[in-house]
């Protein structure tokens, strides 16, 4: 009788422990193709050197993932949000930043690499490590900034609980998601740089990254 009770108790505890939290996975990808990916920007209209070449030159690139709280019922285009938050006016959620350093060799990028190839290479390299295992609750915007600054510079919080600003001269790219609740969304989430105009320039990447 005692054995039977113990078995039932063990089953109950196992069930309870195994179902303490519901786990789910949301896929993140660059797109759609009609938008700028944020990795396909150039220095400016006259100097059309791709910013991604900075990664090739530097030999490594750091991808910095931040989350920004937004109201749950927000209904605004990414560009509007970008302008509203640009230049560091919005503060990323503290202690939710994750950084992923990837060597240039691992990206396999050459000097004349084109936009789609960059996106594919970056996506493949970033897929090896989860961005986070516990996305923030509620509606947020996820931003991925690619920079040649080392992760050690970017992970630290200053005395007021803020992260260090990105340096424009070291930016490689920047993209954001639309406002999304990762705990409830059922579809893949796309990253892009929602701007108008051609080409996509460093100034717009810097605006996205809140660089000063």
């Amino acid at each position: 009788m005692a054995d039977r009770g113990s078995i039932i108790a063990a089953i109950f505890v196992a069930c309870a422990l195994s179902t303490c939290a519901r786990t789910r996975t949301v896929a993140l990808s660059y797109g759609p193709p009609s938008n700028y990916s944020g990795l396909d920007c150039v220095e400016d209209a006259t100097n059309r050197t791709p910013l991604v070449s900075r990664a090739v030159t530097n030999g490594a690139v750091t991808f910095v993932v931040d989350f920004f709280d937004v109201p749950a019922n927000i209904n605004a285009t990414g560009e509007v949000l970008l302008r509203a938050c640009g230049g560091g006016r919005c503060t990323p959620i503290a202690r939710r930043r994750s950084t992923i350093e990837i060597r240039g060799a691992d990206l396999g990028l050459g000097p004349n690499v084109s936009g789609p190839d960059v996106v594919r290479a970056v996506s493949r390299a970033l897929a090896t490590t989860p961005v986070t295992r516990n996305a923030p609750d509620g509606t947020v915007i996820l931003r991925v900034v690619a920079t040649t600054q080392p992760a050690s510079e970017l992970d630290a919080l200053d005395g007021s609980g803020r992260y260090a600003s990105f340096v424009p001269s070291k930016l490689v790219g920047c993209s954001i998601t639309p406002p999304v609740d990762f705990d409830s969304t059922e579809s893949p989430v796309f990253l892009s740089l929602p701007i108008f105009g051609d080409p996509c320039e460093l100034a717009q990447v810097a605006l996205c990254a809140g660089a000063r």
């Binding site: 993140l28 990808s29 705990d183 893949p188």
Partner: peptide, 16 residues
């Protein structure tokens, strides 16, 4: 309890 369990969402890049 079942419906109030925290949700842990893992975000991963789609490597394709």
């Amino acid at each position: 309890w079942v419906f109030s369990r925290p949700i842990e969402t893992t975000i991963v890049f789609d490597g394709r």
